[in-house]
């Protein structure tokens, strides 16, 4: 394909969109709407998974030592722990620190300890896990192993909690795939239909092109461009709208969510790479939607 052909395809594709303004606008807006739904979902998904990833990172194994544990042996135990490759961080929390933490975390509830003699909180090792070890199976295995160390009274980790979090994320991902698939198919058909209408309106011209020696690819070119443009414009439009909504709503949402969770949360917009993926998806869907509608019209 010559460069001049490409220029011609682009010009003709754009001309066709301008020429069929109404139907093109309807198609573009519909595509924009579909991609916007998907984009909104992506924002929710990435933020939720980003946020929870932070939580998962906090999930760590806590090994409580026996009451008679000799604090001089901390380094020795640390060394044993470090032999496990899954472990990325080890911190010893003495009885005193545990108490201090408890007190600072429950200032209003300090009375809970009032009736007790001495310090009832056990010392512990807080063990962070490397990323690769964060699967359920790996965690289980590590915990079983650590439980064999005689100095440990009990080895704990947030099993139920991580599991349901993972399940939740998986469900979210599944919804995303389904939604993306359905919306993708919808866009494919929207574009196929609009392009089919333009093809139909210009079928005489196409017949002439064929008879004066145009190749099928040459005849297709402008329509593929038309579909591609519709997808592209639809995608860009969806992202602009989405950003507008994000810009307007997120500060409010952040505020109320912050109040609710008693924690500063950050909600980020789609990353540059995701933005470009949506645009590319729009273009690809436009291209193939158009190709779909051309098949039966192009016979010599």
């Amino acid at each position: 394909m010559v460069f001049a052909d490409l220029v011609y395809f682009v010009q003709e594709g754009a001309r066709s969109i301008r020429h069929n303004k109404f139907i093109s606008v309807v198609a573009i807006v519909t595509i924009a709407f579909a991609l916007m739904i998907f984009g909104a979902f992506l924002i929710v998904y990435t933020n939720v998974s980003h946020m929870t990833e932070g939580w998962v990172r906090q999930v760590e194994v806590t090994a409580y030592v026996r009451e008679d544990f000799d604090p001089d042996r901390v380094d020795e135990i640390k060394k044993i722990l470090w032999e496990n490759r899954e472990i990325s961080r080890v911190q010893f929390v003495s009885k005193e620190e545990a108490l201090a933490r408890f007190q600072s975390g429950h200032e209003n509830a300090a009375y809970l300890l009032d009736g007790l003699e001495g310090n009832p909180l056990p010392a512990s090792f807080e063990i962070g896990l490397s990323k690769s070890a964060r699967s359920q199976g790996a965690v289980d295995q590590l915990v079983r192993k650590l439980s064999q160390i005689p100095d440990f009274e009990e080895v704990q980790y947030g099993k139920e909690w991580t599991r349901s979090l993972m399940t939740f994320l998986n469900i979210l991902r599944l919804i995303g795939f389904t939604l993306g698939g359905l919306l993708g198919v919808a866009i494919l058909f929207i574009i196929a239909n609009t392009v089919r209408l333009t093809v139909y309106a210009r079928r005489d011209e196409l017949a002439v092109m064929r008879l004066i020696g145009a190749t099928n690819n040459f005849i297709r070119g402008p329509f593929l461009m038309e579909g591609l443009f519709q997808g592209l414009i639809g995608a860009v439009l969806s992202l602009i709208t989405l950003f507008g909504i994000y810009h307007y709503w997120v500060p409010k949402l952040k505020h109320s969510a912050g109040v609710l969770l008693m924690q500063e949360i950050s909600i980020s917009f789609l990353s540059i790479s995701m933005l470009s993926w949506i645009v590319v998806a729009g273009m690809v869907l436009g291209f193939f939607g158009s190709l779909m509608s051309l098949g039966r019209f192009l016979k010599i």
Partner: peptide
């Protein structure tokens, strides 16, 4: 082959009975 037909046609000029000019 079907794909070769366009190239054959480029060597044949045809004046159609109904002209087949593009109106636009």
């Amino acid at each position: 082959r079907r794909g070769s037909i366009p190239y054959l046609r480029r060597n044949i000029g045809v004046v159609f009975q109904d002209f087949k000019l593009i109106r636009s």
